[in-house]
Amino acid sequence: MTIVIGFEGSANKIGIGIVKDGEVLSNPRRTYITPPGQGFLPSETARHHRGAILTVLREALDEARLKPSDIDCVAYTKGPGMGAPLVTVALVARTVAQLWGKPLVGVNHCIGHIEMGRLITGANNPTVLYVSGGNTQVIAYSERRYRIFGETIDIAVGNCLDRFARVIKISNDPSPGYNIEQMAKKGKQYVELPYTVKGMDVSFSGILSFIEEAAHKMLSSGQCTAEDLCFSLQETLFSMLVEITERAMASLWLSGGPDCNLRLQEMMGVMCEERGARLFATDERFCIDNGAMIAQAGWEMFRVGQITELPDSWITQRYRTTWR
């Protein structure tokens, strides 16, 4: 029996989860929400995490009904993510590991999403579309490593949605992507936007520039509504994602924040059905950043003896997805 506690805080969520041999014992989390029109800045996000982390840690232990001495290993997000929040969370993880006398494991955030997805969907060897505020990658396991087959060549899809939300002042509560999804359901008119697929890669920055430039003009002239823009943006971005995934896939599931978007899951479902593949999608408890996913990936690494020594327990904002 191995019990691992995982600390995640690479972006605007601070989460701590405890996993015991594939069972999630607790997984509390807090989200730093900014006013409409604003993104979350690293130093302010770190301040939020500093204020919440010990409360969340207490919740995680209480909910799991465990004492620190029951824990076998402390896992934390080593990257990729925002520097200041990563440092904050790594510092706490390092401290409790020393206080409790437990080994540390630094986890790649993207691998956390993949391992969590594998755990809860039971998918064995999937092609993964991993999309979030900072990541857009099609990943599959090949020749003993997770490898990136397709990815964005500039900004992430979540970043594109978040920044569009700021342009037309959509609320960040609970998340800009969620609110865009709700507005898109009311959109009727499809507005043509650039569509950019390059082999198995995609590019979103041109679409963002286009819509930043055009949105206010189209809205003030009454050419379309904000709902229409949300709808058209989703349709365009998601079609691109489904297309590159189809190019890379064998079987697949979804992971990461915008993956909770039901329209994206629906489009992926149709594509899979047409190819005779099976779609595995995760739900919001586990596809949004959380501590349990770091604990789960840490559990896998700890089990095969991968430990991060104290001098190596730094963080990095850039961390490419390759493991195993």
Partner: peptide, 13 residues
Amino acid sequence: EVRLRGRKRSMVG
């Protein structure tokens, strides 16, 4: 330029 443009380029995990 394009090689440097994407995300998480320099660090190899």
